[in-house]
Design a protein around this nucleic acid. Structure first.
Length: 275
DNA sequence: GTGGGTGTTGAAGT
DNA sequence: TACTTCAACACCCA
């Protein structure tokens, strides 16, 4: 489901609801979600008694800063968090429940069960996968043009795939890659090695701009995304390419085309994004 | 029913 | 290295 703007919206809404709450116990109904430590009993044991001091984000990952540990959570396609009182009925597809000492609970719901959770001792989370290989997102100072340029131009891969690669730039997914390439006027099948400095500059600029606008709109809701308070995003009204198949391009009127790139639906304007 | 598609990402095979 | 396929899983739609 979510890309950077959706995860950031979740981070903000969730933080307000669980900050300073202490975890009394954890229930895990689908153990495969817990990737670290291997043993779910160990996971529960370590997390008991921990207080949520802050919630951060790196790329599409949420980082729950606990008293002694950091819980790294990825929502993949359909993961959602919600805060409930303990007597509210548990929804279908709820796989992890963090029971707080104040009778409320944080529930993780994930229809497709693709989401992951890793628990690390504080300070270890950046040294190990999945965060150790993650590139900076476009908002971080460490996301520099020269490094981005080098990674793009030394690749024979098509730009669509390069931008989906979280070790090149973090936070972009299928929607925002299509939007970024549209605004930059770059065809999704162009190879990284063939891109000009000007094109890469435009991609960098519009990636940041598009993500910032989407964060301001509370993310994009295509079918199932809602934030922690159950609210949908609004950015879908401002999409130029994604999901606009056969609709007239908002810049030139030519019909938006949809093709498949490495198995991912890819939308672009054949006139504004020539190959 | 049946197959294809879905906002993600790793692993396995070539 | 990198590309393709598949796998994880459930649901929606034509």
């Amino acid at each position: 489901m979510p890309e950077l703007p959706e995860v950031e919206t979740i981070r903000q809404t969730l933080k307000a609801m669980v900050i300073n709450k202490t975890i009394k116990d954890v229930s895990v109904f689908w153990p495969k979600i817990i990737k670290q430590p291997d043993d779910v009993k160990e996971f529960s044991h370590l997390i008991r008694g921990q207080t949520i001091e802050d919630i951060g984000r790196k790329g599409k990952f949420l980082l729950f800063q606990l008293t002694d540990y950091v819980l790294v959570s990825h929502l993949r396609m359909e993961g959602k968090y919600g805060v409930f009182t303990k007597d509210e009925p548990v929804l279908n597809h709820t796989h992890v429940i963090f029971h707080f000492t104040d009778q409320t609970e944080l529930r993780y719901n994930d229809v497709r069960k693709f989401g992951t959770m890793h628990l690390f001792s504080k300070g270890e989370e950046l040294k190990e996968k999945p965060l150790s290989t993650l590139a900076p997102d476009p908002f971080e100072d460490t996301f520099t043009f020269s490094e981005f340029y080098n990674k793009v131009t030394k690749s024979e891969r098509v730009i669509k795939n390069i931008l989906l690669d979280q070790t090149v730039v973090a936070g972009l997914g299928n929607i925002y890659v299509d939007e970024t390439l549209f605004k930059a006027g770059v065809h999704p099948l162009k190879k990284g090695v063939d891109l000009s400095s000007k094109e890469i500059k435009a991609i960098q600029k519009y990636a940041k701009e598009t993500l910032a606008e989407a964060v301001a709109q509370g993310g994009t809701t295509i079918r199932s995304y809602v934030n922690t308070q159950g609210q949908i995003g609004m950015f879908q009204q401002q999409l130029f390419a994604y999901g606009q198949t056969n609709k007239p391009c908002k810049h030139c009127g030519a019909p938006i085309e949809k093709i498949k790139v490495s198995g991912r639906g890819t939308h672009f304007c054949p006139s504004c994004q020539p190959n």
